[in-house]
Each structure stands twice: as structure tokens, then as C-alpha cells.
Design a protein around this nucleic acid. Structure first.
Lengths: 121, 121
DNA sequence: GTAATACTAAACCACATGGTTCAGTTTTTC
DNA sequence: GAAAAACTGAACCATGTGGTTTAGTATTAC
């Protein structure tokens, strides 16, 4: 189960680590687009863009369907929930640690006041 | 300026796209650690772990300082703010589009009710 | 039916990544 | 001062990435 989420996060963070792919996501956020549309918008060959879209599909950030000769790309169905969750979890861990450190510092300060301010260390 | 943020996001999402590096960040969220500590924890050579830490440093997610012969790793000054911001922006774009779509659907439904439910299409 | 459009598939390229080993250097310990 | 510990740097390896070209197929337009 853990490995499952790990692989998912691997894929989606990797997908997001390319400026072109982030650009594609932003564009699809405004409107669906064909591979040709995207290739032109990002000054790239069809084949090149198809690969980027493939990466986004595998990360389940984009879905596509082919009607006739044109393949249309859409956002979703996932909405970066897992990625946000990971980041939030990390942030909480971090906050907890800082809170703990702060308490230590406060304790030390209290003690120093009591003992009469040792110079340092 | 845009390129600056782009490069930063490239680096940090790429850094997060590896399960070992995410693991390192979680561990550092609990306590600082030396390269040796981390290498042992993740069953890897010192050299291998040093590279991962280097990637996290370049993404400014982790900072390190060397005292004597040991290099200690700490979570970096950045707290994934830019990454969260990008994701949030994306989510807003998306929501806006869905809202617009929903309105179209609602409008169509209203019209269908008025015209007396055409079978389909 | 011919031509243009939209994509697909395969091969290729240079370079990055995730590891390793091996041979140092610097610090610490005894 | 010798040995051990902690790291560093370089070289190597297999595989992945971000592109390209080239040649093909399927669909649409005229």
C-alpha cells in the first residue's frame, strides 16, 4: 500500500518537475486541447508533445480520448490531492519540531534569568 | 523572473520525485541527521546518500553544515511555499472551469425542462 | 480517389539520474 | 603517532529523459 502511494508520488512529482508539463497543465486548466494545439503552443513537434502528455497521463494528472483523428486532452480526474497531502504532512512535522525547539529555548531563557545570565554557551 | 521560479519549481519537484529523498525529508522533519545516519537508515552507501542530500540542498529544501568531520543536515529555510502556491493556483483554475461548465449544464437543464425533455444528444 | 491532417511508432541522440567502487583527506580517538 | 571514522571526488554503469527525424496509419476534406 505504501509502495503504491510512493510510486504515485514519484510519478506525479516527476511529471510536475518539467516546465513544459506544468505549462500544459495550466493551459488545460483553461480549456481542453488537442495534441496539435499543445505542440504549437509550446513550439515543439507533435511527437515531443505526445510524450509529455503521456507522462501526465501516467501520473493520472491528465486524461485523453481520441475521437476521429484528433486526441483531446483534459485535466484530471485527480486534483493533486496526494501531493498536497504529502506536503501538508511534511509541514506539520516541521511545525511540531519548531514548537518543541521553541519550548527548549524558552526553558533555557527562564533558567538563565534565574541563574543570572551566563555569558555564552 | 518567471524563469527563476520555473527553475526553482523544476528543482524542487524533481527533488521530491524520489522516494528516498522524500524519506530523508520526513526523517529530517523529526530530527537533524548526519550523512552517515541517513545512509544507514536508507541502506545506501555514504556517497549515494551524499548525492541525494546534494539534490535536496540545490532545491533549497535542506541545508547542511560541517562541524569537524561530520556534516549535519537540517530542513531548509524554504517550506515548500512555492510548490504549494503552484498547486493551489492550478486548483483554482480548475475549479473556475468546473464552475463554468456547471453553469452551462444548469442552463441546458433549464432549457430542456422548458422544451420538454428531448430524449438524448 | 487524392490530398491534407492528426496522430503513432521506432530509432536515435546527448545528457541527467541513481546508484556503485575505489582512492583520497581530515578529524577524532586511543 | 597509528587507527578508525566521516566525509569527498572521480570514475564508472545501466537506465531514463527531453527532445528530434523519419516513415507509417487512419480520418477528413475536396
Amino acid at each position: 500500500m505504501v509502495q503504491f502511494f510512493d510510486a504515485r508520488l514519484d510519478a506525479s512529482f516527476a511529471a510536475l518537475s518539467d516546465v513544459t508539463r506544468r505549462g500544459v497543465m495550466e493551459r488545460l486548466g483553461r480549456a481542453d486541447a488537442s495534441i496539435t494545439d499543445l505542440a504549437e503552443a509550446f513550439h515543439m513537434t507533435l511527437t515531443g508533445m505526445r510524450k509529455h502528455v503521456g507522462v501526465l497521463e501516467q501520473a493520472e494528472l491528465v486524461t485523453t480520448r481520441k475521437v476521429g483523428r484528433v486526441r483531446t486532452c483534459t485535466l484530471g480526474p485527480r486534483r493533486l490531492e496526494d501531493e498536497t497531502a504529502w506536503i501538508e504532512r511534511q509541514r506539520r512535522l516541521w511545525d511540531a519540531r519548531f514548537d518543541a525547539l521553541e519550548q527548549v529555548v524558552a526553558e533555557r531563557r527562564r533558567k538563565e534569568q534565574h541563574d543570572g545570565h551566563p555569558k555564552r554557551g
